[in-house]
Amino acid sequence: MTVLPKDIPGDSLKVTVGTANGKPGDTVTVPVTFADVAKMKNVGTCNFYLGYDASLLEVVSVDAGPIVKNAAVNFSSSASNGTISFLFLDNTITDELITADGVFANIKFKLKSVTAKTTTPVTFKDGGAFGDGTMSKIASVTKTNGSVTIDP
């Protein structure tokens, strides 16, 4: 049996954390987006972790974005102690894959008090994996961190 590389060099799934701005007490939304989904033969499963400074940001909610089908079954998240974990699994293993680019999740943060303008990162942590529509590992994932700026 011969195994051929399935990824064209330079191609990767792009996962990007967005940015937001606000004043202390505001609730802002930071999107997590996927790009080049079709090039990577869709997404059938993924789990990953984001870190944030809990002294500056309070997670209000984490909701599935419009590219997630049947989110009540296929999407899960949790947030505590400065870490947000995400889990997606197409429970049907074929019919509810992520097949389009767009917003995977929206994180709502309540901004805490600061004395001066502060930009705090929302960054990928170690761990996690992504699988394509056949549940094979997506070897190349380009992750881009985001941030939230609090301006009193």
Rank of each mutant, 00 (worst) to 15 (best):
T2P: 10
P5H: 08
P5G: 08
P5L: 07
I8Y: 10
I8L: 12
G10A: 11
S12G: 12
L13G: 04
T16E: 08
V17H: 11
G18S: 10
N21R: 12
G22N: 14
P24E: 13
D26I: 13
V28N: 07
V30S: 09
P31V: 08
V32C: 09
F34Y: 09
N42G: 07
V43G: 10
C46V: 00
C46P: 01
F48T: 07
F48H: 09
F48E: 04
Y49W: 03
L50D: 07
G51T: 08
Y52G: 09
D53K: 10
S55N: 12
L57H: 08
E58S: 10
E58P: 03
V60G: 08
V60H: 12
V62L: 09
D63S: 14
P66M: 14
K69N: 12
N70H: 13
N70D: 08
V73C: 12
S77C: 15
A79R: 15
A79E: 15
S80H: 09
G82R: 15
G82N: 15
G82A: 15
T83E: 05
T83Y: 15
I84C: 14
S85D: 01
S85N: 02
F86V: 04
L87A: 00
L87V: 01
L89F: 02
L89G: 01
D90M: 03
T94C: 03
I98A: 04
I98V: 04
T99F: 08
A100H: 09
G102R: 03
G102E: 04
F104N: 01
A105G: 07
K108M: 07
K110Q: 03
K110P: 01
L111T: 05
L111Q: 06
K112C: 00
K112V: 04
K112Y: 03
S113G: 08
S113W: 06
S113F: 03
A116I: 06
T118S: 09
T118N: 06
T119K: 14
T119A: 13
T119N: 04
T120V: 07
V122A: 05
K125L: 05
G127E: 02
A129W: 02
D132T: 15
D132L: 00
T134D: 01
M135Y: 15
A139K: 14
T142Y: 06
T144A: 06
N145P: 05
G146S: 04
G146P: 00
S147H: 04
S147R: 06
V148I: 05
T149A: 14
I150L: 14
P152G: 15
